[in-house]
């Protein structure tokens, strides 16, 4: 009897193999084209040897060279990295604390506390942006500080919206902690602090790395909140790109975008990978 072949020349499709039915396959392919074609063309045309940016005229890395010679852009990039580093450091500490607090303790008004802690994640960015603008203006934050102190206000704003994300991730990691490890530790004579130092914090590590990478990319990527807190002397990379984008579509912007895409996708991929690895161990 003849072998039946399905789409892709394999076993015939069962009734729930939706991806092997053309209506769904069409939607799926169209969705991926929709999601990827704009980004891929953007990245591809950053290597296009033409200012008109539309017809392929040959490969060049000229615009990356221009990018590195563009002092404003490089300063903005330096600012972004500095802010991301500092805000990652502090949001890791604060986020880990919140994670331990919510994972470990029962206390009055806990649901209310949790809800408040989630606010920076859920409120519209624009609201947080204008609140930060109003706050720094009202307390009279000086805008003539020396670098890198001048970036402190942006960093503070970033910490405020990244540390709840870190808390969520680290807490998820802690949920997989086996309390018997801690009891064994106490049984062997450890006190409260030793338990944290020797058992709990090591267990948190993959969560901390994942949370740190997430905080870093969130900070590096943020535009809206930074837009309201940055001054003329403290421009970040996305804010600089924004002013370029408003102006026109150019290969330099494509190149700058490509750099940022590669950095963030790379970092997030590592974070995801670490998180999955942590989850598997559990």
């Amino acid at each position: 009897m003849a072998k039946r072949k399905g789409l892709f020349g394999r076993d015939p499709a069962g009734p729930l193999d939706y991806l092997r039915k053309w209506p769904l396959l069409t939607v799926m392919i169209a969705t991926f084209v929709f999601l990827y074609v704009p980004l891929l063309t953007l990245m591809a045309f950053s290597f296009n040897d033409s200012r008109r940016n539309i017809v392929w005229r040959g490969f060049t890395t000229e615009y990356y060279g221009k990018l590195f010679n563009n002092t404003d852009l490089m300063i903005a990039f330096g600012n972004s990295l500095t802010i991301a580093l500092f805000s990652t450091f502090f949001s890791l500490i604060l986020g880990a604390m919140v994670a331990i607090l919510l994972w470990r303790f029962r206390f009055p008004m806990k649901p209310f506390y949790e809800g408040t802690m989630a606010l920076p994640i859920v409120i519209p960015e624009i609201c947080m942006g204008v609140a930060m603008l109003a706050f720094f203006a009202r307390i009279g934050w000086p805008n003539d500080l020396v670098w890198p102190i001048s970036l402190a206000n942006i960093t503070i704003a970033h910490i405020s919206f990244t540390f709840p994300f870190v808390a969520v991730i680290v807490r998820a990691r802690l949920a997989g902690f086996n309390r018997e490890q801690e009891e064994a530790c106490r049984d062997l004579g450890a006190g409260d602090w030793e338990v944290y130092r020797d058992v709990i914090i090591p267990h948190m590590k993959p969560g901390l790395v994942a949370g740190g990478l997430l905080a870093f990319t969130l900070s590096l990527d943020d535009f809206v909140i930074t837009f309201f807190t940055s001054g003329p002397e403290t421009v970040t990379f996305p804010v600089k790109v924004y002013s370029m984008v408003r102006f026109s579509v150019t290969p330099e912007v494509n190149a700058a975008s490509t750099v940022l895409i590669v950095i963030t996708v790379f970092l997030t991929a590592i974070a995801m990978w670490l998180q999955n690895k942590g989850a598997e161990k559990k």
């Binding site: 704009p38 980004l39 953007l42 990527d221 535009f223 996305p238 790109v241 924004y242 984008v245 579509v249 912007v253 975008s257 940022l260 895409i261 963030t264 996708v265």
Partner: peptide, 8 residues
């Protein structure tokens, strides 16, 4: 990837 870049 960055929201701004996707929009761009």
């Amino acid at each position: 990837t960055n929201l701004l870049i996707r929009t761009y």
